[in-house]
Each structure stands twice: as C-alpha cells, then as structure tokens.
C-alpha cells in the first residue's frame, strides 16, 4: 500500500506534466479563434448585413440600405419554376451525394482495414488523392473523360456499346446532372473513407474475437459490432456530406456552368454575385455583380442548410441512442 502512496509534490509535478497552463491553452486557441472570426464569423455576419443593401461588389462602388427589397425580389421576381427546380436539384444533389458517397466510403474503409488486404496504405493514398485535387483539376479530368466526340466515354458508347449517336453527357438535360453528382462523389469519397478508417481502427479486436467465438459470421459481426460502434463516424460523415453538398457549386461551375439543369442554389448564388450563366437556373438573364441580392440568396441558402443540418443531426442522434 505504501508503494502506491503519491506525495503532494509528485502530484503537482504529474499535473504539470499532464496539462498545459491556462495561458498556454489560450495561446494555442487564439490563432484558431482569430481565423474563425476573421474568415468565418465576420464574413458571415457581413453577408447578412449586406443582404439588406444594393452593393454591386465592384470595388469602391457606392451602396445603400434597401431594407427587404432583395428578399422581396427573390421571393416575388425569381421564376418560381426555376427556383423550385434549383431547390429540388439541391436536395437531390445533397441526398444522393450523402448516401452514395458514404456507402462507397464505408465499403472501401472496411476493405482497406482488412488485414488480409495487401498494399492497404497505397490504396488508401490512391483513393484519398482526389480530395487534394482542386475543383478545376477534377472538372478538367471529367470534361476530358466525357468530351464529345473524342472522349473515352463517348468512344466507348460508340465502339463497344454500339450506340450510333451517343449522348453528349455533360451537355445533356438527362445525364449532365448525374455526371456532376458522380464527380462530386469521386472527389470527396476519400475524405469520408479516412474518417471511417479511423473509426474502424478504434474498434477493439477483442470484441470481434469474442463474437466469432460465440459463432457470429462476418455479416453479423458487421451489423452487430462494426455498424453500431461506427455510428459516431457515420454521423460526422453524414453531416459533412450534407453541408458540403448543399453548399457545393465549384464542380458545377467548372463542369457545366450551371447549364443543362445542373444549377443548384449555391450555383445560383455564385452566378448572381460574380456573373455567369447560372444566375437563373440555366440561362442567366441576370447581369451578375449584384452581391447584395446574392447575399440575400445566401441567407436563404443558409437557412435551408441550417434547417436540414439541425433536423438530420437530431435524427442521427436519435438513431445513435436507438443503436
């Protein structure tokens, strides 16, 4: 018992070793806080304020407060069919990307954490690689892949599938949107996969061993052990994918410029603020450079994203408790 006795100086030393002093913690947090304030909170708050102005976005141009005029214009003048089209596409984009991206990422994570798999680290790196590529690079690759009439996909449809007049995928009202969704999933799947891999590696081996001794099969082990213990990773990935896809416009902008029924609400906001063909859902009759109006659109988008995020978080929490 005497061996276990720790003296007061020893306790203080151990505490010092275990923890940082409060000022050190504050110092470490400070850059993050500054970054958050400078690049997140202040711009977001400014956007909310600017949504009540007629600021154009051109440097040095005068602007004034116009009350709710931007919101009134958005809800009255914006073509309802186009607006609901964009909202529907935004929802389809978010749901499809979230479900498929996470399903593939989970599958890949399970495969790439299996010990019998050779070269796991190489595959992980390869599948993660698209995450570090910029939207412009990804868009260029997809445009080359689908280019007409010399791209490999077009030639495959013509030569192997025997289609006499294959569709131009990225300029098709039927196929352009699925192609953009596929690009989004391809680019971001690696990120979700890494989170799943981290989650899988935290599940103790002993639980599986005990389950196998009790006669569980691979499938049962996955559903009864892996899936419930991975739930926090699934929650994180789902929320990240929902938020990311609701806000996403970069790939749409770079691949189709919002044409051919691919404009989401995020794309419309960008085109309104900075000019471009997606200012309306696929034509662009707005002149662009109306950042006050775009700010109002952003706030509407923010409310939509916030509502969906809170609802999905509540749902995920409930499911986590049920698990």
């Amino acid at each position: 018992m005497a061996l276990l006795k720790i003296t007061a100086p020893q306790r203080r030393k151990a505490r010092r070793l275990r923890t940082f002093a409060p000022w050190m913690i504050m110092l470490c947090i400070l850059p993050g806080l500054l970054h958050y304030f400078a690049f997140r909170l202040i711009p977001s708050a400014t956007t909310a304020v600017l949504s009540f102005t007629n600021i154009s976005g051109l440097p040095g141009s005068a602007f004034s407060f116009i009350g709710l005029a931007n919101y009134r214009e958005f809800f009255i003048l914006q073509n309802t069919r186009d607006l609901f089209g964009a909202l529907t596409r935004t929802a389809i984009f978010a749901v499809t990307v979230t479900v498929i991206q996470n399903a593939i990422a989970l599958l890949m994570a399970v495969v790439l954490t299996n010990k019998i798999m050779k070269g796991r680290n190489l595959y992980r790196a390869v599948y993660f690689m698209p995450v570090v590529l910029g939207a412009a690079v990804v868009a260029t690759m997809w445009k080359l892949l689908f280019s007409t009439p010399t791209g490999p996909i077009f030639l495959f449809m013509q030569g192997v599938l025997g289609l006499e007049n294959p569709p131009a995928i990225l300029s098709s009202y039927s196929y352009a949107f699925p192609a953009v969704i596929a690009a989004q999933i391809w680019q971001n799947m690696g990120y979700s996969m890494v989170i799943f891999i981290a989650g899988l590696q935290n599940i103790p081996e002993e639980i599986y061993e005990a389950a196998y001794i009790d006669g569980a099969g691979e499938w049962q082990a996955f559903w009864r052990i892996t899936f419930p213990l991975l739930w926090s990773s699934i929650t994180v990935n789902t929320l990240l994918a929902i938020i990311g896809s609701l806000q996403s416009f970069e790939l749409i902008m770079t691949i189709t410029s919002g044409q051919f029924n691919t404009a989401t609400l995020g794309m419309m906001v960008f085109a309104t603020a900075f000019g471009g063909r997606g200012a309306t859902s696929s034509g662009g009759s707005l002149a662009g450079m109306r950042q006050g109006y775009a700010a109002a659109q952003s706030i509407v988008l923010f409310v939509a994203v916030c509502t969906v995020t809170i609802l999905s978080q509540l749902l995920m929490r409930k499911m986590e408790v049920d698990q």
């Binding site: 003048l77 914006q78 073509n79 186009d82 309306t280 696929s282 034509g283 662009g284 009759s285 707005l286």
Partner: peptide, 10 residues
C-alpha cells in the same frame, strides 16, 4: 434580357 425571366426566356 428581361429581369427575372425564367430559363426559357434566356
């Protein structure tokens, strides 16, 4: 281009 016109009016 008419302000607020839908996509088929572009």
């Amino acid at each position: 281009g008419l302000k607020g016109v839908g996509e088929y009016g572009a």
